[in-house]
Design a protein around this nucleic acid. Structure first.
Lengths: 357, 357
DNA sequence: CAACAGCGAAAAATCGATTTATCGATTACA
DNA sequence: TGTAATCGATAAATCGATTTTTCGCTGTTG
């Protein structure tokens, strides 16, 4: 092959040293910006670097230091816009600081989460951004604590006694949703959630309930929670509506505490031939691009992904640089977009179930 | 602090060696499964490993070999379901083989793509899975070639003379879409695409056009292509429909060649107050979870993510292990899901534009 | 004029593993 | 019995950088 260039091995720091007529130590110093090198020699080093196309081997470079210039990121999944954007943001922020981001998905499993964390510990990452599957009290956080890792917890967390946390202000956003729905006249609302133990689901539920009952004490709030998976929730929701099909005690609005729940609710509405907002209103936590192009557009709570990412990285790097002090819990404000899927109850007669299977 | 355990440094192979009363070399051999070690000594090594909780440092371990046990993955973005799932799949497959996946997003920029590739080259990844922004002829592929990297190209590629490629069989899927739309009676169809140079967009367009014109030579096919970004496409599409608002030459169906195009089309329909499939039919390349819960459900071409991922990894690892031979181009079959957004033209009178701004 | 401080750069140790060369003890064979 | 082959294990070299230590030289000072 004509790939002589490609075949020969990468130049090492010693190659640069011999080309520049200095020692490897000097090359290292020049490249790391030490000033006690004669300008003449420095220039020769730069020239040699240029000529050979030398690049520092980050792996060898990281060998000697305890912490490597890598940041680990563990997300529950990559398929949703929220975590997808989050990884992209984190990656950019890590790169800005000369770090490499290693991202992994726990696929909603705490066991996997811990295993990934162990791998990252093997790599001696300088820090970890962990979006836990459930909350800050899972085995992953315990592992990080036990092994003295530095990290920051995001998203499904409230506060922790060992790690900084950054998350959306779920409670405040939920309160705003409650105000909006109540001002539209809703007095019977179904809240749909998943994972009772997840810290944020609790915060979202409580934030909603407290504000709602404060504004309208006669309010009726039903709750359908599925412990773990999405499919059980689908069943629970189906049962819930089946029981209320005949009577007049059907809720006039549904508030879903997370994206998958919004999808399940919409799919259930479809099955029953209900349309938003005439037959029922819908608001969901987590926005997605498609929600503004469907008919009706779906109302949603938008989480401040960029702010969460940048705050998380900010605080993480401060810890990496050795900053002490007690861990802080940060809450970033959300935006609530009330779109067409929310209307006033009873303004239009229900279309009644059954025009579709 | 009570974290004595956490504070003391990780045990190294020498700690294990001294605890087991053997040399570091013996420990290394035992752990890598060499059989020429006395069973008694092997057992003592295992015991020491157990007692100290020793884990091999992958970074140090990789130092001595030319290729490291890392796989790089470069995707154009992480926000969409397709690439999100892709990364998740690739990660699992790499892990199965004892490799770590380092994923990065080129954010639809060829410059960034090449820069990321250079960083991965610095890390001496064993191989790269590259989903190029445009096609197989970009600067990134050239960089890989010039530096003798091993890799596989996926998604927006057709075939390459240096690297194996794995992608969805866009042409066949497009042909199927054409057959379906024509059998429903459509004779005037708008195809929406982005990135004229992207290999797959061309394949999708040609696959559609060829089959359509073969089945219905009187067919009229309009094409709206935007070179680079999504926003220009929105403008182009708006202009296209504005010109045809009055006359009767409005297409009866839209076929979008990629996900963002489907969103743009839907958003344009909304603006004009058109509903699918009564006013216009819509099929899009790339499926998403929400497409089956909206009203109407959106017809889509489903790409075989898992198959593409596993084929890519399969072929990549064969190359890593030194398999020779000319590069192969693989095409994986798609599934076409004709949902409610597609109907027969003229079966219901157009609702006419303008019931919304 | 000897001792000493200061500077710049080279030499050497280090990180934690793998791999090659080497070595001692045991067994085999002449 | 002496030499060769074999086996198991250790010492040492290696990967490519960083960091500490050492060294040589110049210039200053008592």
């Amino acid at each position: 092959m004509a790939q002589q260039e490609a075949q020969q091995r990468r130049p090492s720091i010693h190659d640069v040293a011999s080309h520049a007529g200095v020692s490897a130590a000097t090359v290292s110093k020049v490249l790391s910006g030490v000033t006690t090198v004669k300008p003449e020699n420095a220039q020769r080093v730069f020239d040699a670097v240029e000529r050979l196309g030398y690049r520092v081997d980050p792996l060898a470079s990281d060998m000697r230091r305890a912490k490597r210039r890598m940041i680990g990121a563990i997300m529950p999944e990559f398929e949703s816009e929220f975590f997808g954007q989050m990884v992209t943001e984190l990656e950019g922020l890590a790169e800005q600081r000369g770090y490499t981001l290693v991202a992994a998905s726990s696929r909603e499993s705490e066991a996997r989460e811990k295993e990934i964390l162990a791998r990252m510990h093997d790599w001696r990452v300088a820090g970890v951004v962990l979006a836990p599957v459930r909350n800050e009290h899972g085995p992953a956080a315990a592992f990080m604590k036990a092994n003295g890792m530095t990290g920051v917890l995001i998203d499904r967390v409230l506060a922790d006694d060992a790690f900084d946390t950054v998350s959306a202000d779920s409670a405040a956003a939920s309160a705003e949703v409650a105000r909006a729905l109540i001002s539209q006249g809703h007095r019977h609302i179904l809240v749909v959630g998943l994972g009772q133990e997840a810290a944020t689901v609790r915060a979202r539920l409580e934030g909603f309930r407290n504000t709602a009952l404060e504004l309208a004490p006669d309010m009726r709030i039903d709750v359908v929670l599925s412990e773990s998976d999405v499919e059980p929730l689908r069943t629970l929701l189906r049962d819930y509506f089946s029981k209320r099909e005949a009577g007049d005690d059907r809720p006039t609005a549904v508030y879903s505490l997370f994206l998958k729940g919004t999808l399940v609710a919409l799919s259930e509405f479809r099955r029953r031939g209900w349309h938003c907002p005439n037959d029922i209103s819908l608001v969901g936590f987590d926005d997605a691009e498609w929600m503004q192009v469907t008919w009706p557009a779906i109302a949603a709570v938008v989480q401040p992904v960029r702010r969460i990412a940048s705050e998380a990285m900010e605080v993480l790097f401060r810890r990496i640089e050795g900053e002490g002090g007690p861990p802080r819990a940060r809450l970033e404000p959300c935006k609530v977009l009330m779109r067409e899927s929310v209307g006033s109850p009873g303004s239009v007669p229900h279309s009644g179930g059954g025009d579709r299977q």
